[in-house]
Design a protein around this nucleic acid. Sequence first.
DNA 1: AAACTAAGTTTCACATAATGAAACCAGTTT
DNA 2: AAACTGGTTTCATTATGTGAAACTTAGTTT
Lengths: 267, 267
Amino acid sequence: MGRVTGDGTVGKALEVLDQVAAFGRPVRFSEILAQSDFPKPTLYRFLQTLTNQQMLAYDPERQTYTPGLRLVRLAHTAWDQSTLAPVARPHLDALSKAVGETVHLAQLDHAQVLYIDKRNANNPVQMYSQAGKVGPAYCTGVGKVMLAFLDQDAVETVIEQQSFHGFTDHTLDSADALRAELSDIRQNGYGFDREEHEPGIICVAMPILTLAGRVLGALSVTSTTSRTNLAGLEAYVPILRETADKITRDAQNWSFPDYQTKETTGI
Amino acid sequence: MGRVTGDGTVGKALEVLDQVAAFGRPVRFSEILAQSDFPKPTLYRFLQTLTNQQMLAYDPERQTYTPGLRLVRLAHTAWDQSTLAPVARPHLDALSKAVGETVHLAQLDHAQVLYIDKRNANNPVQMYSQAGKVGPAYCTGVGKVMLAFLDQDAVETVIEQQSFHGFTDHTLDSADALRAELSDIRQNGYGFDREEHEPGIICVAMPILTLAGRVLGALSVTSTTSRTNLAGLEAYVPILRETADKITRDAQNWSFPDYQTKETTGI
DNA sequence: AAACTAAGTTTCACATAATGAAACCAGTTT
DNA sequence: AAACTGGTTTCATTATGTGAAACTTAGTTT
């Protein structure tokens, strides 16, 4: 039959969940239906189930669905256990204090960049708003340095999945351009975003690798062309490398999360 | 046969997901099996499906499961669309700056307090680590003020679900004690945490209500007995009330999320 | 090295649960 | 009042999920 999901009913339900999330705003049944491959009653049932399960929230007033609170609860654990964030946190704090610019911590998820943590330039942060955000891999500093250190065939798989939308006129808009850039990055050990995603926004990025060389994530320091330039950002390379190394070291050791006291401090 | 979930296969799968998350650490198949009502192969299949779907992450090295990255992605949207956080953010920033103490924004989820956002006292924040965290309703400032303004029968339902564990010797450890406290809070319009959850930790909390009086969430300012006392915290009541009012007002207006430009700023 | 054991994985007959065409039920519009 | 449109329910059919039992490693013991 038609290409669906694999993973049976559960997979299908999660597909619906993704669809709703993808709208990025409260959506009505009919809007989802229009996007969906599922027949009306099937979709209807999934939405009911997901809502029951608090994976979606339903606003009876406006008759709209949004992703539900249960996700927030679950994600807390996910963030704390399946990402670099807890290990990286102190190092990210230090880095942030040292450079005084916006810093990001990201990981690769599928073929996308997933932002895991962030410190804002000066104003005391509004984080989670950004953690969990996804972005294109081919035109962000963190994205490119992570791709650069993937193994050859993994890169190709990921490259195939990029859509190469030209955000600015500096955006690398072809697989070949990207391959060349990745090769450069591999050479240097770090990379830049030269206003490739947003005009005026530049960054320098450093991969976080295991001792064996596997990609764990990436760090970046972001600024604007009005405040500095690439040469200015390059000055941060040493401290970025240091920070990345520390994270690597901690991650390596910490990999035995031997029964940490689950809740030492109350919230 | 035995009480399960309702919501068919999807519900069961999500139950498993919760179980894994509840461990709060990477878990092996056999550990989950021990907790689970599902027979071995059934559980096995669910874990496979969830892992496939990135709702769980599997570490083949240690043979352990943890909540997966997909949750982080999804929660971002949930947080941004189904919580007070985006509306409250600027007001929370202002409040934080004004009082210089740790402030929390929370909502009620099931019978628990779900922390949605936070600003730390002085050190520039490590938020998401806390957002998504859940806590008991009966012995936190935010929990109690939210319960206080629920309608009568809703309160009773919630009270039944509390477990009344005595965290400290100030903890309200019975339904009746709690009912009395709620009545006081209703009188005053705000409430305290008198070291009920953690010794030395006190807070003043203010509900966020709709104009019609329905509970949306709660705010709190937290401090320690070494730095101040309840009278000291009470001084924050006016600014807390003001902040809560502003959030109410914005939430009321903002409820038509009329096609906001999905991504104005890149990350 | 043969005999246990425990943890994880696969099989397969069976029963349950998901499926979706069609029908139904508001509200709205023509 | 007839013809939409968006949402909900029914129900026979079928696909899917189910779990006892069997099997496969890998790790211990005798």
